[in-house]
Every structure is written in C-alpha cells, then in structure tokens.
Amino acid sequence: MEVLKAVAARRRSHDDVILLCVGQPATPAPSPVLAAAEQALRSDVLGYTEAVGTLAFRTAIAGHYRDQYDLRVTPDEIVVTTGSSGGFLLALLAAFDPGDLVAITRPGYPAYRNDIVATGCRLLELDCGPATRYQPTVAMLEALDEKPAGLVIASPANPTGTIIGSDELGAISAWCADNGVLLISDEIYHGISVERSTPSAWGFNRDSVVVGSLSKYQSMTGWRVGWLLLPEALRRPVELLQGNLAICAPAISQAAGVAAFGPDARAELDGHVRRYAANRDILLARLPELGITSFAPPDGAFYAWCDIGHLTDDSQQWCADVLAATGVALTPGIDFDPIEGHRFMRLSFCGTGAEITEGINRLVAHLG
C-alpha cells in the first residue's frame, strides 16, 4: 500500500508509471458478471443476506468444486465472507485462543502474519527457501520444537507463485490430521497456473479450512467476496462471528458472483491466464538482463520473487529509487520476509505484455 501511495504521488507529477507492483488483475470482472450485476441492481432489493451467504451463491461455489476438483461440497459447508481477508480473520477467531501457536511460511503474505498477532496468537514463521520451492514440508514440521495449533499454507503462493504438489499437500494434510493441527489452505490464486495442477486441501482432509475468493482468477478484487470451506465444528462459530463483525458479504457481489462460475465467464478468464503465461515467458527470458538469475519458479499466480542482492541490501529504498528514476513501480520484499526480504523484490506480471516489456526496458536502461 505504501508503494501505491508513492505511485499516486508519481502520477501527479509524471504520466509514465508502469505498475509491476500490484497484486490484482488489470482487467475488470468478466462480462457475464457485469451483466448479472446490472440485472440485480434493477430487480433486487440487495439488502442483507444470510450471514453465511445466499443459497444461490453457495450452491454455485459447491458446483465449482464438483466441476473443477471432482469434490462433493454442499452449500451448508460454505460460509461466504467479505473477501478472503475477512474469511481468514473469521477462521482465526473461531479456531484459536490467545496464546495458541500458528505457523505460516516465510516469505509469505504479510497480512496473515499481522492478523495472527492481532488476534493474540503466537506466530511461528517457517523459513522456506529455494530448496523446498519456498513451501513447507513434513520434514520441516517434524523438526519443530513445539507443534503449532494451526498451519497456514498458500498454493499458489504470494509472493513466490509456487505451488504445493499433490503428493506434498497430501503429506502435509495427513501430518496435520495426525497431530491435531488445523490446516488453513489459502487457495485464492487457484485457476492461475502454468503446467502444474492446483489440488485443494479438501481433497485430502475435510477437517481443514479452505480459503477461496473471486478476487484473482475472476478479476473481482474490489467486489470483496470470498468464502470458507469449513469443518462442521467451525461452521456455527464462523456464522455467528460473521453476523456480528460484517453481517454479511456484499449482496451485489453475491448476486453477480454466481455468473463468475459459468462457462462464458471461464472462457473469458482463461484468456487472462494465457496472457499471464505469455508475460511470465517474457520475464523469464529477460530477467537475466538485470542480472537476476535467482528467483522462485513462478508456477502460478502472477508474481516473480526475485533475488536482487547483487543490486542492493535495502530493497525498500532501491524500489523507491527505481520508481523515482524510471516510473517503474516494484514491491520490496521486506514485508513478505522480514529477515531476508531486504534483498528481494516481488515483480507482478498481471498487466499487458507491452507494459512488461516497457518496464524491463526501463530497468535495463537504468541499471546499464
């Protein structure tokens, strides 16, 4: 968010900003969603919905898991939330008590770290580097001095874009089940991957929590609608928390979101994924021109987690200097990894191919 603030300042004085920092698609919601939203605006009251979400939207989500994962999920197992962020916070509040130990990966999404601390839980960061493709392993969990009450994983992950394979996800799920650890699986980037499948944790362990969202693949970040797949013991607590903290997710987003799972929307959205893949190829070919040869394999999402230790020991200042000199906005790694992030940056490739190319051209000229 600080980078976007600096971008706004840059735009007031220059008309040259290239956004390689944003964690959201550059495209609007698919046209069937926009049409459904218009219809809802004209014909629906759009008042409060049930705290758990409308039956129509939950049924559409359940159908999505049937069609895409061959999983039987019922609407009663789903709670619709105000984005995945709201859902994650509800899961933390429902599942854990102050003082419980909750593990996350490092590097990882910074809001998860902050939410865990804000709810009074103790934070355990698992140091996940290139040897494990920036993802946790059972061996890593077995080596812990204290078993956590919960484990948060993300696949594809932010900021690395790496995916946990089916065998490893199954092993992690089994370890959590055997050790009484609640697995919370962030799956909001599902649908955006290159040559690798993205299995769901519920394919292995239905006592886990799955976090989903329309934000990334469906290009609906600002619509603020996500969901949780919940084991039975957590459904009522999450429902009550939702009713008190948010009442319900936005009614317009739920009404329109049903169309996001239809074939016409998927055809449009798969076109975005092909563009992300082409942008990824551009980056992989050109990052060596910047001297960047060490980066996480971006199998999914739309990020490259790049080691820029040969360029700086202060990624925050370096990214600020690059924005001031070139108009190219990049995200410093320090928030994702407070230990090693000073020599990393996250580069987002969700824009157009022309933007990616121009951004790299400016960086090459700046560093040359």
Rank of each mutant, 00 (worst) to 15 (best):
V33L: 11
D16H: 12
I104W: 10
E358S: 02
L183D: 07
L90F: 08
D321H: 06
A139F: 04
S219F: 07
A256D: 01
D335Y: 03
R274I: 12
A171M: 07
T326Y: 03
A329L: 02
T119L: 11
D186H: 11
A56Q: 14
V194K: 12
Q68C: 07
L169H: 06
G53S: 00
T352L: 08
V102S: 03
R346M: 13
I360M: 12
A325G: 05
L230V: 07
C306D: 00
S215T: 03
L55D: 15
A51Y: 03
V80M: 02
A36F: 01
L183C: 07
E142G: 11
S253K: 00
G53R: 00
V322E: 04
P136L: 03
A171K: 10
I153V: 15
I61F: 03
S348E: 04
V138P: 04
V328A: 09
Q218V: 04
G333V: 08
H366I: 05
I308T: 12
G86V: 06
I153P: 00
L229G: 10
E38C: 02
V17Q: 01
I292N: 05
D337N: 14
T27L: 08
P263N: 12
Q254A: 02
D97A: 15
A267K: 08
E289V: 11
A233F: 08
L144K: 07
E77R: 08
D207C: 07
T105K: 07
N244V: 14
L101E: 12
R196L: 10
P148S: 05
P130F: 09
R196N: 09
L183F: 13
R113D: 03
A139E: 15
E125W: 07
G165F: 09
L245Q: 03
S31L: 14
L144Y: 08
H190N: 14
G353I: 05
T357H: 04
A365W: 00
I18H: 04
D307W: 06
E38F: 02
D115I: 11
L287S: 02
A154L: 02
A324M: 04
L182M: 12
A143G: 03
V138M: 03
E355W: 02
I104K: 09
Y134K: 05
T312P: 07
N279T: 12
C21N: 11
G222T: 09
A329Y: 06
G226W: 01
A9Y: 06
P110M: 14
N158K: 05
S219H: 13
F336K: 06
K147W: 08
E168G: 00
G226P: 03
Y189V: 09
Q242F: 07
T162Y: 02
A29D: 05
C176I: 00
T49Q: 06
A29F: 06
R236F: 01
G203T: 08
T137H: 10
R11I: 06
P28N: 02
D145R: 15
H272V: 14
V181M: 02
T331Q: 13
S43N: 15
D264M: 08
R196C: 10
S85W: 04
E146M: 12
S31D: 13
L269N: 15
G99P: 10
D178L: 09
D67F: 11
F57I: 00
F344Q: 06
S253C: 07
A246N: 01
D100A: 08
G129K: 14
T27I: 11
A251S: 15
F96M: 04
A246P: 01
L34K: 10
E195W: 01
K147A: 14
Y303N: 03
A8M: 09
Q68E: 14
T293D: 13
S253I: 01
